[in-house]
């Protein structure tokens, strides 16, 4: 049942997927997520606040992430979020979807250096 629901969220917005990936290791907050996403390989675009929080808002309302308690002493403006079970399932489903896509592309010799 969760598996089927996870499929319903696909495909994910690329930034949403990145956010889910950034949360794999535990709760985080806006600037840190951005730092991590921008650091990650393949991200060329600067991520601005409005874009980031629009996706966070969507992920929250879809139940893929949830609010997490801030660690003591953290800046009160920072709201921490973490992955839900559903979020993890969706991220995984998206990754599988992408892998299938990439394999398909390889079969068509679209990525010769990958061989």
């Amino acid at each position: 049942m969760p598996r089927r629901a996870a499929q319903d969220h696909l495909p994910l917005h690329p930034l949403a997927f990145r956010i889910l990936l950034a949360l794999m290791d535990g709760p985080s907050y806006g600037t840190r997520i951005v730092d991590e996403v921008e650091r990650a390989e393949g991200t060329v675009r600067t991520i601005y606040p409005a874009n980031l929080f629009r996706r966070i808002r969507d992920l929250l309302s879809d139940g893929l992430i949830e609010e997490a308690e801030s660690p003591s002493g953290a800046d009160p403006r920072r709201s921490y979020v973490r992955l839900t079970r559903m979020g993890r399932a969706v991220a995984r489903a998206e990754a599988l979807r992408l892998r299938a896509l990439v394999r398909d592309a390889e079969r068509h010799d679209l990525l010769p250096e990958a061989r």
């Binding site: 806006g30 601005y48 606040p49 929080f53 808002r57 403006r77």
Partner: peptide, 20 residues
Amino acid sequence: LPPDMRRRFGPEMVAMLLER
């Protein structure tokens, strides 16, 4: 922005911009 988003994330968005 929609009010709910502004209320919830507005201060953090500003803070993030300033940090950058």
